[in-house]
Computed example of a mutant assay.
Amino acid sequence: MQTKETHIVPPQEKAIRIQEYAVNIFTTIPTRSALKKAIKKGLILVNDQTSSTSILLNGGEKIELLEQDTATPKKQFTLSLSVAFEDDYLAIIEKPAGILVSGNTFKSIDNALVQNLAKSNLTDMVRPRPVHRLDYPTTGLLLIGKTSASILALNSLFEQRKVHKTYHAITIGSMTQIGRIQSLTDGKEAVSHFKVLQSVTSNRFEELNLVELSPETGRKHQLRKHMSELNNPILGDTAYGKEGLILKRKGLYLHASKLEFTHPFTEEYVVVESKLPKKFIKIFPDFAF
């Protein structure tokens, strides 16, 4: 603990107890009861030694008031994350399924970043923060800012649509090979592009497709809504899937597989890719890369 205030006792005609003398010598201890509490907490030192209420003062003693440590250690959420890219400015991590990116919850990616990323050496370093979101059931690449300037710059890149994101999904039902979807999501324009990479027949779902998705905009649940609007919902989507064709207990088959952008500080063109999850490969083994 650090010293908050210091007082030197002037010469006294006769010895006096500290609990009587030291009232009002410190700005934050105006009463005798407050002084007693501070002594009991070990916050009062006399000549560098912890005081008691019975100590007698004669003059010349150094009395110190220590700064009370009021900060409660924050409990950390323990979660091991795979780091795909990292420097002093930013990082890209692999988000697992079944966890929120951020929000008013203890179990979040946001609360697990400090233990997984190296501390930035730059003067404006801050606690690492996600600069965009992935849905709770979605897996894949998530961009993180590690400095104040980086967080602002990355947010600006997203606003200018200069971060190119590629997703892979497995969808249900027969669909055209390539296309563009434009619609309103929550009253705002939402645009996505899709390309079917491979299709397989299925006893339960008739046909399953491995689809590459590229959103131009970043609306909430945009890709999930757009696939549902095409009548080709994403496998495992309990919110936008077809009744009777919702695969349960396997999670959502939507993966953020690629991020591309110009680094706002090094000007390097960053391209980071993520392997498809094993559950994708079980259905489409040709895409095990």
Score class of each variant (00 low, 15 high):
Gln19Lys: 08
Arg17Lys: 13
Lys41Leu: 14
Lys40Ser: 10
Ser51Trp: 00
Leu43Trp: 03
Lys14Thr: 09
Pro10Gly: 13
Ala22Gln: 07
Ile44Thr: 02
Lys37Leu: 07
Gln2Thr: 09
Ile8Asn: 11
Thr3Lys: 12
Gln12Trp: 05
Gln49Gly: 02
Arg17Ile: 10
Thr50Gly: 05
Gln49Cys: 04
Glu5Ala: 07
Ile39Lys: 04
Thr6Ser: 13
Lys14Ser: 13
Val9Ile: 10
Lys41Met: 10
Lys41Ser: 13
Thr27Ala: 10
Ser52Phe: 09
Lys4Leu: 13
Ala38Ile: 00
Glu13Met: 14
Lys14Pro: 00
Ala38Gly: 03
Gln19His: 07
Thr3Cys: 10
Lys40Arg: 14
Ser52Tyr: 02
Ser54Pro: 00
Val46Phe: 00
Asn47Pro: 03
Ala15Asp: 09
Asn24Tyr: 06
Lys37Thr: 11
Lys41Arg: 15
Thr53Met: 10
Thr6Leu: 12
Gln12Met: 15
Asn24Gly: 13
Lys37Glu: 12
Ile44Ser: 05
Lys40Thr: 11
Leu43Cys: 03
Ala15Leu: 03
Thr28Pro: 02
Lys40Gln: 12
Tyr21Cys: 06
Thr27Asp: 14
Phe26His: 03
Thr31Lys: 03
Pro11Asp: 12
Ile25Cys: 12
Glu13Ala: 15
Leu45His: 09
Gln2Lys: 13
Gly42Val: 05
Thr27Met: 05
Glu13Asp: 15
Leu35Asp: 02
Ile39Trp: 04
Lys14Asp: 09
Thr6Pro: 02
Val9Leu: 04
Ala38His: 02
Thr53Tyr: 02
Pro11Glu: 14
Thr28Ser: 15
Gly42His: 05
Ser52Ala: 12
Thr6Val: 13
Arg32Val: 09
Gln12Thr: 03
Ala15Cys: 00
Lys41Glu: 12
Ile39Arg: 02
Lys37Tyr: 00
Ala15Arg: 04
